[in-house]
């Protein structure tokens, strides 16, 4: 089985690249046609565009391509959690001037959290405190 690599500093993905990466993360691995099939209804992306974007992702080192038949199968190399962690750090750094509390405050003030989600957040906070 292919071992998933974690990248030290994955390069920022554009909106459309992230969209396709999300599909690949969900599917585990996929060819161009499968990715197109998984696009939301009304999202019109040409076969060549998807193929090009997947090749760009390959160039960025976040997916690997394997020849299969006439086409390629793309496998994510970048782990979703790693990218999320990197993206959060990036947002904290760029938007909240490196102050994570400011981001949490904005999140709590502006995003409606259900009781279950609030409990989950509390659990995460207590786990973090215990770890220290």
């Amino acid at each position: 089985m292919r071992r998933k690599k974690t990248l030290d500093a994955p390069r920022r993905l554009t909106d459309v690249e992230l969209e396709l990466m999300s599909i690949l993360w969900d599917l585990g691995e996929a060819g161009v046609a499968e990715v197109i099939a998984k696009l939301p209804a009304g999202r019109e992306l040409a076969y060549t565009s998807v193929s090009t974007i997947l090749r760009i992702l390959e160039g960025k080192g976040v997916v690997e391509a394997r020849k299969e038949g006439r086409g390629h199968v793309y496998v994510p190399v970048l782990i979703r959690a790693d990218y999320e962690a990197h993206a959060v750090k990036d947002v904290v750094q760029r938007v909240f001037a490196g102050v994570p509390v400011a981001m949490v405050r904005q999140l709590l003030d502006n995003v409606e959290l259900s009781d279950d989600e609030v409990r989950e957040v509390r659990k995460l906070l207590s786990r973090t405190r215990e770890r220290r």
Binding site: T14, V16, T48, S49, I53, I56
Partner: peptide, 11 residues
């Protein structure tokens, strides 16, 4: 630019 990739005709 990468932003043009999804617009096949424009590209």
């Amino acid at each position: 630019p990468a932003s043009l990739v999804e617009r096949a005709t424009v590209l």
